[in-house]
Design a protein around this nucleic acid. Structure first.
Length: 364
RNA sequence: GCUGCGAUGGUGCAGUGGUUAGCAUGAAGGCCUGUGGAGCCUUCGAGCCGGGUUCGAGUCCCGGUCGCGGCC
């Protein structure tokens, strides 16, 4: 059965559906990040009502805590977190390589220290696949080697080669028929390397192709150039996933180039730092200019936060460090981005998607 | 009435007789993009008043004002 079908094309932008074990998900879509099985400050009911069809959780983090035994008792992550729509799992490459965990990186895998018991453990591509299979996510991601922004050519080359080697091991050990598996291309913003890496990943017949190691500090222009060069090698019919992108502007730009899937902690993280998305200009609710402002965050937004609460109240909650401020702002930002995605899908289907129009409306 | 202590950015504190007086918080602005839970950056903003000692005082001395405490 075909897992991905493209139903409409508008320029390079496409709208389609990704078939998963938990239903079809319309593309392009955005996934909020639920690393530990929860989008920070939001209940899953709220995540759903904000317009979310799919979220992304983290295999590496979840296998450390609560562990597969606990989640296994629930027969998988969907039941454990009571979320019956789509779930991607990130392998954990992004985390395990951080200074906090990583002891040594080798061809075999990543030697890391488990912070909960201090034990040294080896995280391998096979392990990443096994964990994700047992979590029962709809889409598993390969373990990849994510270089830091600004890495030199040698590091980028190593990372791309290791990612390819690991991708082969991931695909060889992936037996879960109900679960899709996406490969990840690396290569930073080095055009040749990125093209080569993408070519290698594409050669392995994954269910989807992700672009990794982007939007981590490089310029937006470089990121776009990189996406364009990678796209020379990704077949039209494959779902294309740009990892880590979540601002309205970058989403619009990327959709117009043909990206189908996004994930990012951006909307919810900036919410926790007091930034509320809006059409004219994003607003920092911390600013005292909102002390007495009876308007909603965004008058054209239909979310319950904008319907029910004033900027003044949200400013007060934020200033007094009430957790509700985090929740309400997170909800609004997620609703805002999911509203954008819905509008994008509709526009593509109606063949009226215009990047400039969307940027004017949403992009700051 | 006597006496002790104190007085430093809006707020709470630090400090040394000697360059641009620190820190926290606050205010203004910016950032955050495959998240270990409220982070990061830039800027703004001050020594109660009046005398004196000294080359030089926020710092030492005298007087005053205000605040807190004690005593009669």
């Amino acid at each position: 059965m075909k897992t991905f079908s493209i139903n409409s094309v508008c320029g390079k932008a496409r709208a389609g559906t990704l078939q998963t074990a938990h239903g079809a998900i319309e593309t392009p879509f955005f996934m909020p990040v639920a690393t530990k099985g929860s989008v920070k400050y939001l209940s899953n009911e709220e995540v759903l009502s904000a317009g979310t069809d799919c979220l992304i959780s983290n295999a590496f983090i979840l296998h450390l805590k609560p562990g597969l035994e606990v989640i296994g008792k629930h027969k998988g992550l969907h039941n454990f977190m009571h979320w019956q729509k789509g779930i991607f799992t990130d392998s954990g490459g992004f985390q395990v390589l951080s200074r906090e965990f990583c002891l040594r990186l080798s061809e075999q895998g990543v030697l890391f220290r488990n912070p909960f018991d201090g034990k040294k453990m080896l995280f391998t591509p096979e392990k990443a696949i096994e964990i994700q299979s047992r979590l029962g996510s709809d889409v598993a991601m390969c373990l990849d080697d994510v270089p830091l922004a600004g890495s030199d050519l040698k590091r980028l080359t190593d990372s791309a080669e290791r990612t390819f080697a690991w991708a082969k091991r991931c695909i060889a050990s992936h037996k879960n028929k109900k679960q899709l598996l996406f490969g990840i291309s690396q290569g930073g913003i080095e055009k040749k390397l990125r093209i080569k890496s993408t070519e290698q990943i594409v050669s392995l017949d994954f269910d989807g192709i992700a672009l990794g190691g982007l939007c981590i500090g490089e310029s937006k222009e470089k990121m776009q150039e990189t996406i364009k060069s990678a796209f020379q090698k990704i077949p039209f019919e494959k779902p294309r996933y740009l990892m880590g992108v979540g601002s309205a502007r970058e989403i619009i730009e990327s959709v117009s180039m043909g990206i189908d899937i996004f994930d990012s902690c951006f909307p919810t993280r900036v919410a926790r730092h007091g930034l509320a998305f809006a059409f004219e200009k994003n607003l920092n609710i911390d600013s005292s200019k909102f002390r007495i402002d009876l308007k909603p965050l965004e008058k054209k937004c239909n979310c319950f936060v904008c319907r029910d609460y004033s900027r003044s109240y949200l400013h007060h909650l934020y200033r007094t460090k009430e957790e509700n401020a985090m929740k309400l702002l997170s909800y609004h930002n997620l609703f805002f981005i999911q509203g954008l995605m819905k509008k994008i899908r509709t526009a593509i289907k109606e063949n009226s998607f215009k990047k400039e129009k969307f940027l004017k409306e949403f992009g700051k």
